[in-house]
């Protein structure tokens, strides 16, 4: 990996390609940048609270935005009782996330709506890859001692390699929270960089476990270090922390993505995960992306939701738009 020089702020980085952005190669750890980060919690919370009150989409726009949200979902199951059976069911839903009659009523057949990816534990990767064969839907594997990330480092690296070998095109790694809490950013950088190397061609999402990082400042610094170390995406949560995705976390991470982009020209993706269950909440995240980073971050190569039940709620809202009647979950094919 060749690191680009860590330039001072570029105010107008080059435009991004329409489909797949160039992968982040990372830069040398720049602690000056990391330590200069300032995050004012009260101000961030005020901004986060007003984004959903400043923006809304209605009618056709809401339907279109919700369809877009569907394409951004990493449809996920991460349970101890996952079996090939329920993972195959999930994959089937991933291919046809919205009932055909609704899609047709929306005039969206030609959009070829599928979810962004299917996300599973390593043991179910092969099942998912097989179930999704013929589609372009990638399989993502959570990895590196998910969710706590405290198993031996060699084992964590090995885990990545095994999942990639099994066909995972995306790897969601977890960081060692202790490195952030103790301010050991060099260790964090080295860890993420090692994971990134192990990923090879698979895209890497770095899960920060924001709910366990104590402060928004820590979230921001961890975001920056993870990006410097080569993460393709930064992701809020495993879904297993006490607090998972929130708009303030999203706002802080998006601002770091913007700063990294302005400094290096590399566009990093964002994935909020955990607790996003309603269509309304999903739209709020889309407003954050559009307002803070721009329309380019509303595409699957730069934005994903980590979610499971969200899809059904979106499907209900879409049916409501089509029929004018409030919809029932049991009428949607379950994932």
């Amino acid at each position: 990996m060749t690191a680009k020089p860590n330039l001072s702020l570029v105010t107008s980085p080059r435009p991004l390609p329409a489909d797949h952005v160039e992968r982040n190669a990372g830069v040398p750890l720049d602690l000056d940048v990391v330590r200069a980060i300032r995050v004012n919690r009260s101000a961030v919370e005020r901004r986060a609270a007003t984004i959903p009150t400043r923006r809304t989409v209605k009618n056709e726009w809401q339907a279109a935005w919700l369809l877009r949200a569907v394409t951004l979902i990493d449809l996920t199951t991460l349970s101890g009782d996952d079996t090939p059976g329920n993972v195959r069911r999930l994959c089937a839903k991933a291919r046809r996330p919205v009932r055909d009659d609704i899609i047709d009523a929306l005039g969206a057949r030609d959009l070829g709506i599928t979810v962004g990816a299917v996300c599973v534990y390593h043991a179910l990767v092969k099942t998912a890859v097989d179930a999704l064969a013929g589609s372009d839907i990638p399989v993502a594997a959570v990895s590196t001692g998910f969710p706590a990330g405290l198993s031996p480092v060699e084992q964590r690296v090995q885990e990545i390699r095994a999942s990639v070998a099994a066909g995972a095109r995306e790897i969601d790694i977890v960081i060692t929270r202790a490195h952030v809490l103790t301010g050991n950013y060099a260790a964090l950088y080295d860890e993420v960089r090692r994971f990134r190397e192990a990923c090879g061609d698979a895209h890497m999402k770095a899960i920060l476990a924001t709910g366990e990082l104590a402060t928004l400042g820590n979230v921001a610094r961890a975001s920056m270090v993870a990006m410097q170390a080569g993460a393709d995406f930064i992701k809020t949560s495993t879904g297993k922390e006490g607090v998972n995705a929130t708009l303030p976390f999203a706002l802080v991470m998006c601002r770091m993505i913007r700063e990294y982009y302005e400094r290096t020209g590399w566009a990093i993706g964002f994935k909020p995960a955990g607790g996003i269950r309603s269509a309304k909440n999903a739209l709020e995240y889309l407003y954050v992306m559009k307002e803070e980073l721009g329309d380019r971050w509303l595409q699957p190569d730069l934005f994903r939701f980590g979610a499971s039940s969200l899809l059904t709620d979106i499907e209900r809202q879409l049916e409501h738009f089509v029929t004018g009647r409030y919809a029932a979950a049991h009428r949607m094919p379950m994932p």
Partner: peptide, 17 residues
Amino acid sequence: MPSVSKIFRTMEYGPAP
């Protein structure tokens, strides 16, 4: 009024009176 497909591509805001 633009179609759902078109808005899906542009991701514009619409009227919300």
